[in-house]
């Protein structure tokens, strides 16, 4: 095969360029932040001009957007959704709740640090982040992808034990299928 260093590099550049300009989001809103997505997508802010588009199923998607607080019950579904997605995949934590719990810091049912359970590539700060902030977060992700640094999925695979341990600590009755990725 003609797969020496330089040609591989060119292929990588093309791949990363295409990945950067075509980010499909899973249509799955976990918290109140999902309400910021319609204005982001529609004519006022129009995220489609950056190639950001919604996709209906996790199989086709690239980006998992955690929009807001994560209840333990939702975390279970989010983990399953994340594991069904195909590489390369990215996670964006959206809003203060995913960073340190936000206003749900003393809630009995909300996980407070998303990156203990899923590998987060980009955090968007705010409560709520307005569409401008969302788009700037996506552009940050695009920069990371172009530089080849958005490797959350790789981290997740390498440190799966650590993530699983954290997930099992929160999800008491662990009845999850294993996906053969």
């Amino acid at each position: 095969m003609i797969y020496d260093k330089s040609s591989g590099k060119i292929v990588d550049i093309i791949k990363n360029y295409a990945r950067k300009h075509s980010l499909w989001i899973v249509a799955y809103g976990t918290g109140c932040g999902a309400i910021e997505l319609p204005p982001t997508m529609t004519s006022r802010y129009d995220a489609e001009r950056f190639g950001i588009r919604g996709s209906a199923t996790p199989r086709q998607a690239d980006v998992l957007l955690i929009t807001g607080y994560l209840a333990v019950k939702t975390l279970k579904r989010v983990i399953r959704t994340y594991e069904q997605m195909q590489d390369p995949k990215y996670v964006i934590g959206f809003g203060s709740c995913t960073i340190n719990g936000g206003m749900y810091w003393d809630s009995y049912n909300t996980v407070k640090a998303l990156d203990r359970y899923l590998p987060v590539d980009v955090y968007i700060n705010g409560c709520m982040p307005r569409p401008e902030a969302v788009i700037s977060g996506f552009i940050e992700l695009q920069k990371l992808i172009e530089a080849g640094k958005a490797n959350g999925a790789k981290k997740y695979k390498e440190n799966l034990d650590w993530y699983r341990e954290n997930q099992r600590k929160v999800i008491k009755n662990w009845k999850m299928p294993d996906y053969n990725w």
Binding site: I99, W105, D106, Y108, N109, T110, K112, R116
Partner: peptide, 29 residues
């Protein structure tokens, strides 16, 4: 119904200490 796999006293009772539960069970940044 809403909670999954809940053990212990129900969370809306006032003798349930939610801060203690949250700090015990969830990692606080």
């Amino acid at each position: 119904f809403i909670l999954e796999d809940w053990e212990g006293i129900p969370p809306y009772r006032r003798d349930f200490d939610t801060v203690k539960y949250a700090t015990d069970n969830f990692y606080t940044r």
